[in-house]
Nucleic acid binder design. Sequence first.
DNA 1: TGTACATCAGTGAACGCGCGTTCACTGATGTAC
DNA 2: TGTACATCAGTGAACGCGCGTTCACTGATGTAC
Lengths: 223, 223
Amino acid sequence: MRRHSRHREELAPRAEQKQQTRQALLDAALRLVADNSFDGLSLREVTREVGIVPTAFYRHFQSMEELGLVLVDESFRTLRRMMRAAREGALPHEQLVKRSVETFVGYVQAHRPYFQFLMRERFGGVASIRSQIRSEIRLFVSELATDFARFPGADGWSNEDLQMLSGLIVGAMISATEQVLELPPRADADDVIRIAEKQLRLIILATPHWKSQPSRPQAEDAS
Amino acid sequence: MRRHSRHREELAPRAEQKQQTRQALLDAALRLVADNSFDGLSLREVTREVGIVPTAFYRHFQSMEELGLVLVDESFRTLRRMMRAAREGALPHEQLVKRSVETFVGYVQAHRPYFQFLMRERFGGVASIRSQIRSEIRLFVSELATDFARFPGADGWSNEDLQMLSGLIVGAMISATEQVLELPPRADADDVIRIAEKQLRLIILATPHWKSQPSRPQAEDAS
DNA sequence: TGTACATCAGTGAACGCGCGTTCACTGATGTAC
DNA sequence: TGTACATCAGTGAACGCGCGTTCACTGATGTAC
């Protein structure tokens, strides 16, 4: 096989190796932020982990901040891929909640370092990273609200109320994520799944009784 | 007035001044973590802010970690005081949700730096601080669950379901706290309050319809 | 009240360390002819 | 195919800096008699 004919997976050796080093830097940073927080992580630590000299870092990123932003992007790219798949899978009306929660929690467990990074840096010391994570989450909530708008029974719901509802659900899933990450790496997450599932079912139970109106108070409480 | 007779507010001058410096260190640290995260905050920065020499720090704390743990304690002490007051104020059945949310959000705004610190360090780089914050939140959820257990209508609820319910509510309040802290310091929080209030009302709306049973699935969905 | 001594919060010099960043470099890979 | 030159990922020495921590100290406050 001639060295110059490039097939699918085969990049120019030079460019390919550079790409590999770049990815190695990203992977090393992700591995290392399991302990330190991101802004306590030094450029030298990352290059040491990869096995290159500190100055070589600048061949790939302008700064640690730039690397961090790429990590945020990587994290959400994989998450978005999953959510898209979940959405396309249509709604099997029953078991929807159970399946969704199980899928999501399984995904968190399989991508632990990414979620650890996102949860931590959501409040972290680097402003640009923080705000990028938050805007991704906000986008997420909006997309879920749009999905709900298409449900039968959502006719009377105001936009704000749809956002309120999906905000509540995303909040519950974020809580579940926190709890999964608190568990030891390979632990059984059944308790977390069961609780999160109940929370979603409880929320859904309320929706038929909600009167979405500009701002009139409800007198619905039954007990 | 003789210097040696000690009245209420009057400590021995020596001890009083030491206490003042200690508090100044805590205040300075709290002020400074608005920018950096706590584990990016140096001992020297804190002492510089107070106006003492770095080595004097050790007259008051063994390490920055110890200072951080005291900050966690201070934060929750003030929060607990508020919650106790709210609990003692009995329940005026109507407007309870509205008043609770308004009180809580107002409290967050009035103690912004403490909550900023708690939210950030909940996922921060210092393990002992992280776990102390989490255990305080867990305690909080449990106490709320105990309160719910005393409500009429909570007879049929299992312990797990009460915890699930209060977990959902605390989660919603944590989301609201995040949103308040995202606003500029003196901004109007009415939108956040209104959304959080709706979320709590939605949750409460569901409770009469919830059948708390070991693990039998629900067939309650009405739409 | 006056004197001699003890306490201890804060001082200031000094240390060794890891940091981010600069710079001129090396040598393997890639390209032109 | 062979040669001469260009590219550029990674090197390694060097820099100035802020860090946490040590140590012996100072001098005002407090205490014993």
